[in-house]
Write a protein that binds this DNA or RNA. Structure first.
Lengths: 115, 115
DNA sequence: TTAGGATATAACTATTTGCTTATATGTTCA
DNA sequence: TGAACATATAAGCAAATAGTTATATCCTAA
């Protein structure tokens, strides 16, 4: 049923990244849709640099990719990563972060003006 | 297809434990069969206390259970753990540790005398 | 009952980690 | 062009982590 093994070393690095509550929640949110940094900031009780640093680690490991759209930088899950099958599998075991996602939608940080 | 979600907090704790090369390898070995501490010692280049401490963390999290058999303490995967489905799923993505298991069989540390 | 082997615990240390604040960089728009 | 916003990086710090050595505990067998 399953396939495409990773080396233990590589897998443990990915699992270590996912073994942090903040990063695991970020991945669960990105599993719903891509998000920009300011959207993620809405649902974590920590500073902007802290979120940026988590995202950098995830990006360095190839788990996410970034795309600048104007003044915002959007992050999304990198489905071409060798680790993607493992990641996807892990995400099956944690609940969808619908509450946090609603919080993002409600606050809508990329639309401050209302025009 | 998948089921029985864990809370993010609980899942991240389990993933953090698996996010260590030594512990992940231990779990992969225990996935083949139960092993005593002295058998595990054969395949890791570190001290006995270090292995014991890793096993303790895994036991505290409920991922493994221990059973004393005479002078040896055997560890095995705790299949009744809430985290077992996640663990099993993760282990699908890393290669079977057959080489290390052969090393254990060859050295056979629980049979020093040969009687 | 004591010696020796197997394992666990204690105490210590160096490294890593996750956060903070301060600051730099990049983008938009008046 | 420069003010304001979004994001990244730098530097520093406290806590967590993974290893070590020394020692305690538990079991077997002579």
């Amino acid at each position: 049923m399953q396939q495409v093994k990773m080396e233990v070393e590589q897998a443990s690095l990915v699992l270590k990244l996912l073994g942090d509550k903040t990063r695991l929640t970020i991945m669960a949110l990105l599993n719903i849709r891509e998000l920009c940094v300011c959207e993620l900031l809405e649902v974590f009780d920590m500073s902007q640099p802290s979120i940026s640093q988590h995202l950098r680690k995830l990006k360095d490991a190839g788990l996410v990719k970034e795309e600048r759209k104007g003044q915002w930088v959007y992050y999304s899950i990198n489905k071409t990563s060798d680790a993607y099958p493992l990641l996807e599998s892990v995400l099956h075991y944690i609940p969808e972060q619908t509450e946090k996602m609603e919080q993002i939608i409600k606050s809508n940080p990329t639309l401050r003006c209302g025009c």
